[in-house]
Amino acid sequence: MFDIIRERLHQGYRTLNYPFVSPSISPRFAGLPSLEPTSCKGCEGRACLAACPTNALRITAEGPELDMGRCLFCRACEKACPEGKITFTHEHRLAAYTREALIVRGKAPEDIEQPGIRQARGTQKRDLSLFARSLKLREVSAGGCMACEADVNVLGTLIYDLGRFGIEYAASPRHADGILVTGPVTENMRAALLDTWQAVPEPKIVIAVGACAISGGTFKGSREGCGGVESVLPEGSVDVYVPGCPPNPWTILDGILSVAWKKHAAK
């Protein structure tokens, strides 16, 4: 008993006052992409397109645009671009309310890394204020490789302390306000995902976490389904997209807060 108390004193208080204090993330972490407009004239070979593993880039008249819903944040395009027009900032808050808002077209604002409450990208498909005070989520892994799942799970630990925002993972869809889906949605999980979603009482929300859940990610070309959440659930059912492979836990926390808490606190 004495040893436990002594160890407890050693382990200390670890919860971070997020979002008001910036979390410390590795300098090598790749966050929000920043794309400078360019004509791409000097690069006939389209080096960034050839380097991107998941075809997340497109070249338009104004220069490259990057779909964070497919991006693995592997920096291959950053290295490939001969003009250095593609860079990754350190900003971890990447969540968006619409699929379209995940597409990055320009330069990231200078003050992007300031801590505080920031609205998710895009506009909400519907009013989510009902969930602002308390949110119970049922997690469904549908082909997830356990990296997204681990970073979703870790939000329950004492650094992040999800409970202080009134958010919990529920053990049954019947007790949940919505589902949080990870993984590219395999053929063999199609029915289970649909059943779980249908078992959640209305009104309900859906959060898609990770490149796999958003677009199929690295498994997009699979013969076994793997088109992401929107290949199985009805169109427009996803309320928040959290990109990354896997997203940093702070990115996921920011994404969940964009439903449950931020709007409320911003008032």
Binding site: P53, G144, C145, M189, F219
Partner: peptide
């Protein structure tokens, strides 16, 4: 079997630049 993503077959059919990310996602932990 619920998690079957047909990953071994994807290794054969994917472009070389995608193979390493697929390997890293075989078991994410």
């Amino acid at each position: 079997g619920f998690q079957h993503r047909d990953a071994e077959h994807l290794v054969l059919t994917s472009p070389a630049r995608l193979v390493l990310p697929i390997m890293e996602n075989m078991a994410g932990d």
